[in-house]
C-alpha cells in the first residue's frame, strides 16, 4: 500500500428503479484509508460521483454501528463481505487487499424487490413479524425484576435468538433464498420466554404461513445462513421452529369462526 492509502476497483450494481433492468458499472477509488468502514469508502466514491455531476449510488444504512440491520450488501459473493459476524457498516477496508476488485450487489431474492441500486425492499420480513412476532397483552409498567422467573438457559437462548437484527443476510446467503433462520429466530426469542407461551402455537403457525406466502424458498440445511449472519444466530433455532410448528400443527385448535 502506498502512502496515499488503498486503491480499489469496484464493480457495482446500478438500477434506476424496480422497473429498470440494471447492470454493473465499474468505478475506481483511491486514497482509501484501511481504517475506513465499507460504507465510508462508498461515501468517498459518492462524493466523487457527485462532484463529477453523476447520480450517487443508493445504499441503505442507518445506525452504522451494527445494530439496525439496514446496511446489507452482497460483497464478493458473501452477504456483509468477507468478515464473519460483522455487518457491512462494521466491515473495515483493511479486510481487503490494495488494488482488489470488489463486486457489490444487492440482496437477490424475489420477495425483496430492488428499490434503487443496492437498496432492496425488505417489507416481506415486516409481514412475517406482523403475523405473530409480538405478545398481545398490555404489559403496563416494567414489572419488579424476578417476579416472573425465567430459567437461565432459556433467557440466554432467547437473547441469542433476539440478536437477529432483521438484515436479511440469511436469505441473501441461502441457496434457496429461504427466510427460515429469520423466522425461526423471531419465533424462538418469544417462544422461549414465559410471556410468549400463551400464543406460542398460534405464532408458529401464522409466522410460517406468512413466510411461505411471501415467496421465500424452503430450508435444505446448507447452513449458509448461520455462517453469513452478522449476529451468528444458530440454525438450532430452525430445528426449534420445526418442533413448534409440527406440534402446533398437530395440536393447536383452529380459531372459531
Amino acid at each position: 500500500m502506498s502512502e496515499k492509502g488503498m486503491k480499489l476497483n469496484l464493480k457495482i450494481w446500478r438500477q434506476k428503479s424496480s422497473k429498470d433492468k440494471g447492470g454493473f458499472v465499474d468505478y475506481k477509488v483511491e486514497n482509501i484509508s484501511p481504517n475506513m468502514s465499507f460504507l465510508e469508502m462508498l461515501d468517498v466514491l459518492n462524493e466523487k460521483i457527485i462532484l463529477e455531476g453523476g447520480e450517487p449510488i443508493a445504499f441503505d444504512n442507518d445506525c452504522r454501528e451494527g445494530i439496525c440491520g439496514m446496511c446489507g450488501l452482497y460483497i464478493n459473493g458473501r452477504p456483509h463481505g468477507p468478515q464473519s459476524g460483522t455487518t457491512t457498516c462494521q466491515l473495515h477496508m483493511r479486510s481487503f487487499r490494495d488494488g482488489e476488485l470488489i463486486t457489490i450487489e444487492p440482496w437477490r431474492c424475489g420477495a425483496f424487490p430492488i428499490v434503487k441500486d443496492l437498496i432492496v425492499d425488505r417489507s416481506a420480513l415486516d409481514k412475517i413479524i406482523m403475523a405473530g412476532g409480538f405478545i398481545s397483552v398490555s404489559t403496563g409498567a416494567a414489572p419488579e425484576a424476578n417476579t416472573i422467573p425465567v430459567p437461565r438457559d432459556d433467557s440466554g437462548n432467547s437473547m441469542d435468538a433476539a440478536q437477529c437484527i432483521g438484515c436479511g443476510a440469511c436469505i441473501a446467503a441461502c441457496p434457496n433464498a429461504s427466510a427460515m433462520l429469520f423466522t425461526a429466530a423471531k419465533i424462538s426469542h418469544l417462544g422461549l420466554l414465559p410471556q410468549g407461551q400463551p400464543e406460542r402455537k398460534k405464532r408458529a403457525l401464522s409466522m410460517v404461513k406468512a413466510m411461505d406466502d411471501a415467496g421465500f424458498g424452503g430450508c435444505t440445511n446448507h447452513g449458509e445462513c448461520e455462517a453469513a449472519c452478522p449476529k451468528n444466530v444458530s440454525t438450532k433455532f430452525i430445528a426449534r421452529m420445526n418442533r413448534d410448528y409440527i406440534s402446533a400443527g398437530l395440536t393447536e385448535e383452529p380459531e372459531k369462526e
Binding site: F24, P82, E105, A173, P175
Partner: peptide, 10 residues
C-alpha cells in the same frame, strides 16, 4: 448473483 457465492458451510 453475478459473483459466485463463497461457500462457507454447505
Amino acid at each position: 448473483y453475478a459473483s459466485s457465492q463463497r461457500i462457507l458451510e454447505t
